[in-house]
Write a protein that binds this DNA or RNA. Structure first.
Lengths: 169, 169
DNA sequence: TGATATAGTAAGGTTACCTGTCGATTATTG
DNA sequence: CAATAATCGACAGGTAACCTTACTATATCA
């Protein structure tokens, strides 16, 4: 039996995507901090990505962000403490509160959106519209392909003699 | 003064990259679990990405993975406990230990690498070599562009009257 | 040989999530 | 219409994956 490992002879997509995503995340945060919004934390992104200008409920934001109600609630309360968000009781539903940006929160959000728009412009300049749009399409489709395949897998554990012989411990 | 927010009218690259990266990460982990390697955790990826077949030191692996010596050490000890890795004292350096895969660890790693190769093949089928390679090139370059720009920024906080007026609290 | 650097480890902290549970309120239904 | 179920935000506590600080043992260098 060989102890050789067959490595990929290319940089895997997962490494490329992860590093690009990480660089973008870092850049967005650094940019906000450089603009003076030093209180912004990575977790706040879930709010900026899901809170429309007219406001929303934490439950709805959580669903859109793909995290739990409790986690979104915690992030929102943190941002209220920082003066970025406000919560007011929903007059139409005694259980609910409506989350909105404060005036400062609007400035933070606007800065972030402006930077996203600026990055888009820079990327189109660097790569050309065609290649950049190809990348966007491919990334979106990769996500689709993988998310689709999740539930439909029949998980045939017995099919693989190696894992079957090894796994029990 | 308007309370309007100027939103991007496109899906930002950061959202695309993040979701694709997340889907790939989940897929890799799910795949390992489905193959019977249920003990594998997300943090183990830092090892699979940095440990060559001939073995290495945790300090070197940490540097390559971009995490601290201590964090890598903890992950490695965890994987030793799980029977995936072994640590033996380096005969050439009394301070150092050499980390290697166990026989089972080799199976886990091989399964992961095989899946990475398989995903690459699927993506090339779906998008064609040209578009797929464009995506890889663009992602790598985006990372480069952003990482380059990090240290060179002069951070002109005073340049922005809005943030300057708001930030102090 | 003594100062300094490096390898691994220990201890404790932080962040960003999670689950389980609760009281209050609203919606449903028998 | 009353009982039951669902939903809202919040509280408590847990966990994974990092981090910083500090330590010992060994190695290297002036």
């Amino acid at each position: 039996m060989s102890r050789e490992l067959v490595h990929p002879d290319f940089v895997p997509m997962i490494a490329l995507a992860e590093k690009a995503a990480r660089a973008l995340r870092t850049d967005m945060l650094t940019h906000a901090h450089e603009r003076g919004f030093t209180q912004i934390q990575p977790a706040h992104n879930a709010v900026f990505a899901t809170l429309p200008p007219e406001g929303a409920r934490t439950a709805d934001m959580a669903a859109r962000a793909g995290i739990t109600r409790q986690s979104m609630g915690e992030v929102v309360r943190d941002m209220v403490r920082l003066g970025i968000l406000e919560m007011v009781p929903d007059p139409a539903d005694g259980r609910a509160k409506i989350v909105t940006f404060t005036e400062e929160g609007l400035h933070v959000a606007q800065q972030g959106f402006s930077h996203i728009i600026d990055l888009d412009r820079q990327f189109r300049e660097e790569f050309g519209d065609a290649d950049f749009e190809t990348t966007c399409r491919v990334l979106a489709r990769i996500q689709e392909m993988l998310d689709d395949g999740l539930s439909s897998e029949p998980t045939p554990a017995s099919v693989n003699p190696i894992s079957a012989s090894i796994t029990r411990r």
